[in-house]
Simulated assay, not measured.
Amino acid sequence: MRTRQTPANTRKPPSWDRDAACARLTDPEIMFPGNEPQAIAAAREVCAGCPVQRACLRNVITSEGARRGGARHGIVAGLTGHERWLVYRTLKRRGQLR
């Protein structure tokens, strides 16, 4: 029995992506606050009420990989680039990432 495979460039994005709170923002730049504490807090607020925050975190940790904190941009899953790097490093040390 043959199965038909979908080419990689035509696959639909994961459903969690469409359900993300940040996907509904009229100004997505909110998620790239720089170093301004109030702007960071506003971006974290978007993530705090997001129904897919855990899936988002899993995805970003996997996709960013071992990149250092300074090479990770924006607030994703409620975390700064440096915080995401710390999560990655912790999971890697525990053997929970490949």
Rank of each mutant, 00 (worst) to 15 (best):
M1S: 14
R2F: 12
R2Q: 10
R2S: 11
R4M: 08
Q5P: 10
T6V: 08
T6I: 07
P7A: 03
A8K: 12
N9I: 06
K12M: 14
K12E: 11
P13F: 03
P13R: 08
P13S: 07
S15R: 12
S15K: 11
W16K: 05
W16Q: 05
D17T: 12
D19L: 12
A20L: 05
A21N: 04
A21R: 03
A21M: 09
A23N: 09
A23H: 13
R24L: 15
L25A: 08
L25T: 07
L25W: 03
L25I: 02
T26S: 09
T26K: 10
D27S: 05
D27R: 06
E29G: 07
E29S: 10
E29K: 10
I30M: 12
I30D: 10
M31H: 03
F32E: 07
P33D: 03
P33R: 03
E36H: 08
E36F: 09
P37K: 02
A39D: 03
A39L: 09
I40P: 01
A41F: 07
A41Q: 08
A41G: 06
A41P: 05
A42T: 06
A43L: 02
A43P: 01
E45P: 04
V46T: 02
V46A: 06
V46L: 06
V46M: 04
V46Y: 05
C47E: 00
C47D: 01
A48R: 09
A48E: 11
G49C: 06
G49I: 06
G49D: 03
C50D: 04
C50G: 01
P51D: 04
V52K: 06
V52A: 05
V52N: 02
V52S: 01
V52I: 11
Q53Y: 15
Q53W: 15
R54E: 12
R54N: 14
R54H: 15
L57W: 00
L57T: 02
R58Q: 14
N59K: 10
V60F: 10
V60I: 12
I61R: 01
T62I: 13
E64N: 13
A66E: 11
R67S: 08
R67V: 06
R68D: 11
R68V: 11
G69Q: 04
G69E: 00
G70Y: 07
G70E: 08
G70I: 05
R72E: 02
R72V: 01
H73A: 09
G74Q: 03
G74I: 04
I75Y: 00
A77M: 01
A77E: 01
L79N: 03
L79K: 04
G81Y: 08
H82C: 15
H82K: 15
E83Q: 07
E83N: 03
E83H: 00
R84C: 00
R84V: 02
R84H: 00
R84S: 01
R84I: 01
W85D: 14
W85G: 05
W85Q: 12
W85V: 11
L86Y: 13
Y88C: 04
Y88K: 02
R89W: 14
T90I: 08
T90D: 14
L91E: 04
K92I: 03
R93E: 13
R93K: 14
R93D: 13
R94V: 13
G95Y: 10
Q96F: 11
L97C: 02
L97T: 03
L97D: 00
